[in-house]
Simulated assay, not measured.
Amino acid sequence: MTTKIVYQTVVSGLFLCETDADESPEEPGHFHIPGGAVETPPPESWPGDKWPRWNGAAWELVTRPTASIAESPLDKLKAFLSANPDVEALLNDKP
Rank of each mutant, 00 (worst) to 15 (best):
V6T: 03
V10R: 10
R53W: 11
I69Y: 13
L14H: 14
A89N: 06
W46F: 02
L90S: 10
I69S: 15
K78S: 05
T3P: 03
N92W: 04
M1V: 06
E18D: 12
R53I: 07
Q8M: 00
S12C: 11
F31K: 03
P95S: 02
P34Y: 01
A70F: 06
A67P: 09
V11Q: 15
G56A: 11
E39S: 10
Y7F: 14
Y7H: 15
P25G: 10
P42A: 09
T3I: 07
D86R: 08
W51E: 14
A70H: 06
L91I: 05
L81E: 01
Y7N: 04
A83R: 07
T19W: 00
V62I: 12
D20I: 07
P52D: 08
T9E: 09
P65D: 09
W46H: 03
A83Q: 12
L16A: 14
F31H: 00
P95W: 08
G29K: 00
Q8S: 10
K78D: 05
S12W: 05
S24N: 07
T9Q: 12
H32L: 09
N55Q: 13
V6S: 01
A83L: 07
P65M: 02
T66E: 13
R53V: 11
P52V: 06
R64N: 11
L16N: 15
E71Q: 14
P28N: 07
A70L: 11
T3D: 07
A79D: 04
W54I: 02
Q8Y: 08
G35R: 09
T2I: 09
A70K: 07
E27L: 11
E27P: 02
E39R: 03
F31C: 01
P85M: 09
S72K: 10
A67R: 12
L74G: 00
E71Y: 04
E44S: 14
P95K: 04
A57Q: 13
E39G: 10
S12K: 12
A21H: 11
K94Q: 15
P95E: 08
E39M: 08
I69L: 15
F80V: 00
T63F: 09
L90V: 08
V11C: 12
E18H: 06
W51Y: 14
G35Y: 08
I69M: 12
V87A: 05
E39I: 11
L81T: 04
L77A: 08
P52I: 02
T3Y: 04
G13N: 13
V11F: 13
P28Y: 04
S82F: 08
S68Q: 10
A83Y: 02
R53G: 06
K4S: 04
K4Y: 03
Q8K: 05
T40R: 10
A57S: 15
E27T: 12
I33F: 00
L81G: 01
R53Y: 09
L74I: 05
K4W: 01
A57D: 11
A21Q: 05
E71T: 12
V87F: 01
I33M: 01
A89V: 00
V38K: 01
G13A: 03
I33N: 03
E18C: 13
A67F: 13
K76R: 12
E60M: 04
L74S: 02
A67M: 09
K94P: 09
V10F: 02
E27H: 14
D49L: 14
E18M: 12
L90D: 10
T66R: 05
V87P: 03
N84M: 03
I69H: 14
W54R: 00
E60C: 01
Q8L: 11
P28S: 07
A89H: 01
F31S: 03
D20L: 11
E18N: 15
F31Y: 06
